[in-house]
Design a protein around this nucleic acid. Structure first.
Length: 552
RNA sequence: UGGGGCGUCGCCAAGUGGCAAGGCAGCGGGUUUUGAUCCCGCCAUUCGGAGGUUCGAAUCCUCCCGCCCCAGCCA
């Protein structure tokens, strides 16, 4: 592990396991259930598990925890793999499936039955709940708890053969119905589900529960560190019970950490799905969604997401990270890696009254990094600038174009506004200005400096583009707590701009290319809808704006 | 009011008995052909609270307070 990495309890404990020879190599795993799209919270788990394996020279598996076929599908299996790879990770070996271990799990269940440590229970779900007791009251033994090994074995084998209906019986561990830890009150190991499984088809009418399967899956794969979230901490005694009572040669070490939450975000699958179902967003990968595919389509670089996950740290305390921290990581990454370009959002015609010839300009593609090279731009007498960049008059804080005042056209000449035309309503129709300098880069000979720099595009050469400007989906920082999601929605989370004009060079932009439109923000060519004939850019994130007085 | 966790700056988070890192946000200032970037400076005499142990405590002990998780045949 490199020295500049912040220490956290996970690294400390793994290092200790290595130092004390408790393990000789690190094997972790990212074990999603394929029942939805991955989101920013999963990204944290991915960076933790793959990151730890990488740091300690170990390996990380991708394993689908597919023990509940009714909620899972191939679509999610595909999207999850794509998202993990996009984030920059490659799992060790083949993709693994819990379902590939069903036979072994079944054998182990049989073993518990033989040992008198598991029994088939015929209680209905309601009855089972009543027998379970409450948080403060111990449970009662199931009347089926005393079944003989022979009977339990017979019943369980017949469960597998499909002789019983869904929900009719379950296999339970025989532990302690009075345990203060509810997870130990004879937890269910297998339930009957006559459902086709996306991997095993109709092979199984019974499926193991997560609690019975998960730890054993880790055992089978030789996982040394089973890293999971806090809510599984009190399941650990149960997992240990399985390990102690099953003929397994290996004992993974489970370590829990707090899941990542960010402000202004919801990640519960139910709520994400609600946003889709109510057409508040356009799908799992809508650029406003906190899904990996949504962030990707928004233009958030994988590296920024990785850095963010590292920067927020890993601890055991429930916390909500300010989403501004994610945005900061995105800006930091994009500032260094996005080429610059110009885009006029709300075009206002500007005529250069004294420009005789179109002027060829060599404009750097990055203000600092020379390796980005230059591009040629042509400055014509007829331009578009942004409406916001012109005022007939303004105070000295307005560092843009004002009649009688000067600005520099980005990469080009210094101009001075002379006059403007207005319509009957007083709205400015076009602006007339004269060039003060003749050579790009020159300062005015009279020493009167321009007030600022504004972006522009050539009126005849620029190409129209659709720009989608995004804002946060929610108006409150903790939408997850809202009783009604629709009540905390930001109604203006998407603004589609169809008047924008981008510089001609952008016809070569490929889907997912990100640019900084100077003075505005970062924009990504939409992964699916961008075409060179009809550019579509999504606003990734605006430039940081510390201008205190927007009214100049 | 059973069990398991967690409480260090507005938000994250190092620190594990020796004189409170860092990031984000914020606030000043400098540079600048992006009101961006970059650079400099400021930002916890104090670690949920109260006692105690100690030469010395965020770190150890005691009690208290607050928050989170668990009663799916979900994961």
């Amino acid at each position: 592990m490199s020295a500049e990495m912040r220490s956290n309890f996970l690294r400390t404990q793994i290092q200790d396991d290595l130092d004390t020879d408790r393990v000789s190599a690190v094997v972790t795993r990212f074990p999603p259930e394929p029942n939805g799209f991955l989101h920013i919270g999963h990204a944290k788990s991915i960076t933790v598990n793959f990151g730890l394996a990488e740091e300690f020279g170990g390996q990380c598996h991708l394993r689908f925890d597919d023990t509940n076929p009714e909620k899972e599908s191939q679509e999610f299996i595909d999207s999850i793999q794509e998202d993990v790879r996009w984030l920059g990770y490659e799992w060790h070996g083949e993709v693994r499936y819990a379902s590939a271990y069903f036979e072994q799990l079944y054998e182990w269940a049989l073993h518990l039955i033989e040992q008198g440590l598991a029994y088939v229970c015929d209680l209905s779900p309601d009855e089972a709940r009543a027998y379970r007791g409450t948080l403060t009251k111990p449970g009662q033994d199931s009347p089926y708890r005393a079944r003989s090994v022979v009977e339990n074995r017979d019943l369980f084998v017949r469960m597998r053969l499909g002789e019983f209906n869904d929900g009719e019986r379950v296999l339970r561990a025989k532990i302690d119905m009075a345990s203060p830890n509810i997870n130990l009150r004879d937890p269910i190991l297998y339930r009957i589900r006559h459902a086709d499984h996306h991997q095993t088809g109709s092979d199984w009418p019974i499926y193991p529960t997560y609690d019975f399967a998960h730890g054993q899956e880790d055992v089978i794969e030789g996982i040394t560190h089973s890293i999971c979230t806090l809510e599984f901490e009190d399941h650990r005694p149960l997992y240990d019970w399985f390990i102690e009572n099953l003929p397994v040669p290996h004992r993974p070490r489970q370590i829990e950490f707090a899941r990542l939450k960010t402000s202004y975000t919801v990640t519960s699958k139910r709520k994400l799905k609600q946003l889709i179902d109510e057409a508040i967003v356009e799908g799992w990968d809508d650029p406003r969604m906190p899904t990996i595919s949504g962030l990707r389509r928004r233009g958030y670089p994988a590296a920024a997401i990785r850095h963010f996950c590292e920067e927020v740290g890993t601890s055991r305390s429930d916390s909500v990270v300010d989403v501004a921290m994610l945005e900061s990581a995105v800006r930091d990454e994009l500032n260094r890696h996005a080429p610059r370009a110009m885009c006029v959002m709300r075009p206002l015609r500007l005529t250069l009254t004294n420009l005789a010839e179109p002027l060829k300009l060599q404009v750097p593609n990055h203000p600092v990094d020379q390796s980005f090279g230059h591009r040629e731009l042509v400055l014509d007498a007829e331009l578009f600038i942004d409406e916001d960049d012109f005022r007939e008059e303004a105070n000295k804080h307005f560092k843009r174009l004002v009649i009688g005042k000067r600005v520099r056209l980005r990469g080009g000449l210094v101009i001075e506004a002379e006059s403007c035309d207005k319509d009957a309503d007083g709205a400015v129709q076009c602006v007339y200005a004269k060039c003060i300098t003749a050579v790009p880069g020159d300062d005015p000979a009279d020493g009167v400096k321009p007030k600022g720099v504004i972006h522009w595009v050539s009126a005849d050469r620029a190409i129209p583009a659709t720009i989608r400007e995004y804002d946060r989906l929610f108006s409150v920082s903790d939408p997850g707590k809202a009783e009604d999601l629709s009540a905390v929605l930001n109604q203006d989370s998407l603004t589609t701009n169809t008047t924008a004009m981008v510089e001609p060079g952008l016809v070569t932009a490929e889907p997912e290319d990100v640019y900084q439109f100077e003075r505005q923000g970062y924009f990504v060519a939409d992964r699916y809808e961008h075409h060179s004939e009809r550019p579509v850019f999504n606003m990734t994130i605006g430039l940081r704006d510390t201008w205190s007085n927007p009214n100049g």
